[in-house]
Design a protein around this nucleic acid. Structure first.
Length: 351
DNA sequence: AAGTGGAGCAACCGCGAGACA
DNA sequence: GTGTCTCGCGGTTGCTCCACT
């Protein structure tokens, strides 16, 4: 049996709120509070009894939290706020409510929208610029070779050495991340390492028990000099190896790798040709932006795809991804496919 | 001027967690 | 222990505005 809806959708108004509705809701809550029951609030206010003023309690809550409550800020995100959002997103993923809690006056919805519509693209632009510069500085690198291959129509070319051919792999620069955060949040509850640990522990932990991150490590994981794989290392472990592949989920020899700290699952697929085919599928807890989407791979995978006859990226691209914070020693000890990642790293560095 | 497509944003939806009877 | 209800969250939708053709 399904759950009963929170309200009768046929009898509630939906869509944008009118100034009258706003005023009524705000006035009531300022006088009486929410009463601890949003569902009952519309009746108390009189929304239900008055024609044309019917709102679901849930809708009232959303409206109050996002727009009507005092000290809400809209738009005008500062550079510092950008940095905080980026850093926290990198650290904890799309936990917008947690991120919003560190930005007084900001709502999770606002931050979420801001990230999706602007910040993501802003970083993307920076990253691509960096990529372009990195690409230009590698005039003799594999990119040129691949371009030549593409021109020559060599469909077999890929980043995988062909028959012992020594081919230099193209390692892009780190994803362009915000500069080290000058963390000046006024909220003292967050501005210390213990708070960060508590926060992350509360979130379910991005770390194992033996590893307690410093504030710098949490906010600037990509710049951290710690015994765990740096982001550059992690980044370098992202390898594209062109090959054809059947669906991972349908494969008979696939292996699910579960990262112990996040429960993220990755499907690692192997073939008789060893590392020719390694496909990782999974939820990266919000890291798709940096590690899974084409913005990151447009130089690597994109170039490779251009070398290939096939343009079916879903089937012909393979990416090995070690998400930050989980690609630590414990993971390597515990996961059955640890060797794949290690081998890939050494494999690619040998090229 | 009209049509079109993309960006930005407000609001909705559905689910899981927790409280409570 | 179970069922019901509400809250809170993250993902998604759809509307509006604006630039461009």
């Amino acid at each position: 049996m399904g759950r009963a809806p929170c309200c009768d959708k046929a009898n509630v108004k939906r869509g944008p709120w009118s100034p009258e509705e706003d005023a009524k809701l705000k006035s009531y809550i300022e006088k009486h509070g929410t009463g601890g029951n949003w569902i009952a609030l519309p009746q108390k206010i009189g929304f239900i009894s008055e024609a044309g003023l019917k709102r679901c309690g849930k809708s009232c809550r959303l409206r109050w939290l996002n727009y009507l409550r005092p000290n809400i800020k809209h738009g005008g995100f500062t550079e510092e706020e950008d940095n905080i959002i980026c850093s926290l997103y990198i650290s904890i993923g799309s936990r917008w409510s947690v991120i919003a809690a560190q930005l007084p006056g900001r709502t999770d919805n606002d931050i979420k929208n801001y990230w999706n519509t602007r910040l993501k693209k802003k970083l993307l632009g920076k990253h691509r610029k960096e990529q372009q510069q990195a690409c230009n500085s590698r005039s003799n690198g594999v990119v040129v070779k691949q371009e030549n291959n593409r021109v020559s129509g060599d469909s077999s070319s890929s980043l995988v050495p062909q028959n012992g051919t020594q081919q230099q792999l193209y390692w892009p620069q780190m994803p362009m991340l915000p500069p080290p955060l000058q963390y000046t949040n006024q909220d003292p509850s967050f501005n210390d390492q213990e708070s960060v640990r508590k926060l992350l522990a509360k979130l379910g932990g991005g770390f194992n028990n033996d590893y307690q991150p410093t504030l710098d490590e949490v906010l600037n994981p990509q710049f951290t000099d710690c015994p765990h794989p740096s982001s550059q290392q992690i980044y370098e472990e992202q390898v594209h190896i062109g090959s054809s592949s059947s669906s991972c989920m349908n494969s008979t020899n696939n292996n699910l790798v579960q990262f112990p700290q996040t429960n993220d699952q990755y499907c690692v697929e192997g073939t008789s040709s060893g590392l020719d085919m390694v496909q990782v599928q999974g939820n990266l807890s919000g890291f798709e932006f940096f590690y899974g989407e084409d913005l990151f791979t447009d130089k690597i995978i994109g170039t490779t795809a251009n070398c290939s006859q096939s343009t079916n990226w879903g089937e012909n691209t393979s990416t090995v991804i070690c998400p930050p914070f989980v690609a630590n020693s414990n993971y390597r000890q515990e996961t059955p496919k640890e060797c794949i990642f290690q081998e890939l790293s050494s494999y690619t560095r040998e090229q």
